[in-house]
């Protein structure tokens, strides 16, 4: 068999896989759009009333209904909705009277910044803690890590957030308070990515950078702590499973050091399922955690969606839901991709 022929086969397989991949994404999106759309139409919230109020005269209601296209048959409404969404048009928010897309562009980076730092903290500390707990199973360290995790699970985040603000902001003054950045800097900054750390660093405004970081670190640590509670728990259980495998005995019989066995052999195998856990935790944080954003006055996606929901602002809710759904789809695909990178058994040669 010539190498050229083999390369062709491989290329064909790769393009096949890619094709299947795209079909899956397409179908998933269609499902997501259908679900969000029909939920938006069947819930007992009248978007017309939300706009004009309940004292508007009959003819105004009828006119607005027509303007919104609500008098058309449902399937036509869905078609219009999908074709608009494909152009990035989620309609206008009733609450902010901005296009929903513009609102999302403003709020999503705030959540992205918070969630990303949160997952870095959560995975960066949670994974080693879980490994440590697994290696010292049943010992004091394991119990302490168990309690740390349990607190993370069970203490309400808004209480912990308030306590953290009282201690680190009000008493000690180590960190910035609520909000993303001090007002002083707020209007001097031209948003490019919307991620304040990136924007300030790009502009070379290191004072503003430090200020943004001091605002970010507390809520991010808090989210990180909650992610850590889950990630360390899962890491521990995956590691216990791996450490009981025969290849660990073989690695010991080879005379490898314990640290090499733990980190290079067992954790390398445990990372395979762990990637999915971390990706889904990250997606959970990106969804926007309303309580944290409320406590820290963080103008993020979670707060935006919740406010919109409470005000029957359906365009904003649907737009936000689609963004959140996209994040889940994207991160799932990413973790599938990493899965094949980490586990040679799932690769097709």
């Amino acid at each position: 068999m010539s190498t050229g022929g083999r390369g062709d086969v491989r290329l064909l397989r790769a393009s096949n896989a890619l094709g299947r991949f795209l079909v899956v994404i397409l179908l998933t999106y269609l499902g997501l759009l259908a679900v969000t759309f029909f939920i938006g139409r069947v819930i007992p919230i009248d978007p017309v009333l939300a706009i004009v109020g309940d004292r508007a005269p009959e003819h105004v209601i009828a006119r607005v209904r027509e303007e919104l296209g609500l008098n058309k048959p449902l399937w036509e409404q869905f078609y219009i909705y999908v074709s608009k969404v494909l152009q990035g048009d989620f309609g206008r928010s009733v609450l902010t009277s901005n296009p929903v897309m513009q609102d999302i562009r403003r709020t999503f980076p705030a959540t992205l910044e918070l969630a990303t730092l949160g997952i870095i903290i959560g995975a960066g500390i949670g994974v080693p803690l879980g490994v440590w707990a697994a290696v010292r199973r049943g010992r004091l360290v394991d119990q302490i890590i168990r309690i740390v995790g349990l607190v993370g699970y069970s203490v309400p985040i808004f209480w912990l957030g308030l306590m953290a603000l009282v201690v680190f902001y009000a008493r000690l003054g180590w960190v910035g308070g609520p909000g993303r950045i001090d007002v002083v800097y707020e209007y001097t900054l031209v948003p490019v990515t919307g991620l304040l750390l990136l924007d300030t660093a790009r502009a070379g405004e290191w004072e503003a950078f430090a200020n943004a970081l001091s605002h970010l670190i507390l809520p991010a640590s808090l989210l990180g702590y909650f992610a850590l509670a889950y990630i360390s728990r899962m890491t521990r259980s995956f590691m216990l499973n791996e450490l009981a495998q025969e290849y660990v005995v073989a690695a010991r019989a080879k005379g490898l050091s314990e640290s090499r066995i733990i980190w290079r052999h067992a954790l390398r195998n445990a990372m395979v399922p762990l990637v999915t856990v971390i990706a889904l935790s990250y997606a959970g944080l990106l969804e926007g955690s309303v309580l944290t954003e409320t406590v820290f006055s963080w103008p993020g996606l979670g707060l935006y969606i919740t406010n919109s929901l409470q005000n029957a602002d359906m365009n904003a809710v649907l737009g936000g839901t689609i963004i959140v759904g996209s994040i889940f789809i994207g991160l799932n695909l990413l973790s599938d991709l990493l899965y094949t990178l980490l586990d040679p058994r799932t690769r097709t040669r």
């Binding site: 495998q245 025969e246 290849y247 005995v249 073989a250 690695a251 019989a253 080879k254 052999h265 390398r268 195998n269 395979v272 980490l342 586990d343 040679p344 058994r345």
Partner: peptide, 16 residues
């Protein structure tokens, strides 16, 4: 001192 284990399916590390 070295040891050979029973089943290479389990005694070799699957990701190396």
């Amino acid at each position: 001192i070295a040891m050979v284990l029973q089943d290479p399916k389990y005694s070799l590390n699957p990701v190396m």
